[in-house]
Amino acid sequence: MAYKILTSQCISCNLCLTVCPTNAVKVVDGQHWIDPELCTNCVGSIHTVPQCKAGCPTCDGCVKQPSDYWEGWFANYNRVVAKLTNKQDYWERWFQTYSQKYSEQLQKRQSQSVGSEA
């Protein structure tokens, strides 16, 4: 799976041009793009991560280009869901809210059962 440069995120800093070990990054009509025939994802080089992505100051300029429809669909879905739910906090907030509501209901029932016994 080759990488591609999101032109809307690219700030034309040209860092990707200098760090690519296979010279796959090209500039055509002022737009940066990665030649998928030359891109190796830096596999087989001394680098452990793709250098275009590692060197990109925007962190979103270079992204993996899906090799098939469903891989691309799920990548988009996961990206959008992560933005919508702020995934890091979503389940923690859900658990806190649920446990608080459950605790309140439990206290109500306990106070009702204590009040009916008297």
Rank of each mutant, 00 (worst) to 15 (best):
C20D: 01
T7C: 01
K83M: 12
E104M: 05
N78M: 06
A24D: 05
G44W: 08
I5C: 04
K87R: 12
S45F: 11
Q112R: 13
E37W: 05
K108M: 12
P50A: 12
C42S: 06
I11A: 01
I5E: 01
Y90N: 09
G30K: 01
I34V: 15
F74I: 15
K64F: 11
K83I: 07
S116N: 12
S45L: 08
N86V: 07
E104V: 09
K26E: 05
D89E: 14
P57K: 02
G72Q: 01
E92T: 15
W73T: 12
R109G: 13
T18H: 13
W73K: 13
T40Q: 08
L84E: 08
Q96R: 13
T40N: 07
N23G: 09
Q107N: 08
Q107K: 11
G55K: 04
R79G: 06
L84F: 06
G72T: 10
D29K: 07
T48A: 10
K87F: 01
K83G: 11
Q107D: 11
S99N: 14
A2L: 04
K64V: 15
T97F: 00
L15V: 15
N86T: 08
T97K: 05
I46Y: 04
C62T: 12
V80M: 06
S99Q: 13
P66K: 00
G72Y: 03
L15M: 14
T97M: 00
K108H: 10
S113N: 11
T58R: 04
Q88I: 06
W70V: 11
D60W: 11
T97A: 07
C13G: 03
D89I: 08
S116C: 09
D35P: 00
Y77L: 15
S12P: 00
N76R: 14
V25P: 02
Q96L: 13
S67T: 14
Q110P: 00
M1T: 15
G115R: 12
D60L: 14
D89M: 05
V19K: 02
V81K: 15
A24H: 04
V81P: 02
F95Q: 14
Y77K: 14
D29L: 08
A82G: 10
K101Y: 02
W94P: 00
V19Y: 07
C42I: 09
G72N: 05
C62L: 07
I46C: 02
G61P: 04
A118F: 11
L17S: 01
G44K: 06
S99F: 09
L84P: 00
T85C: 07
Q9I: 00
F95A: 13
R93K: 15
K83A: 14
E71I: 09
V25F: 03
A24S: 15
R79V: 03
V81C: 07
C59D: 15
C42V: 07
A2Q: 09
V80Y: 05
Q110R: 14
L17V: 06
E37C: 02
P50N: 04
T85K: 09
N41M: 15
L15R: 12
K87M: 08
C16H: 04
W73S: 08
T97D: 03
I46R: 03
F95M: 09
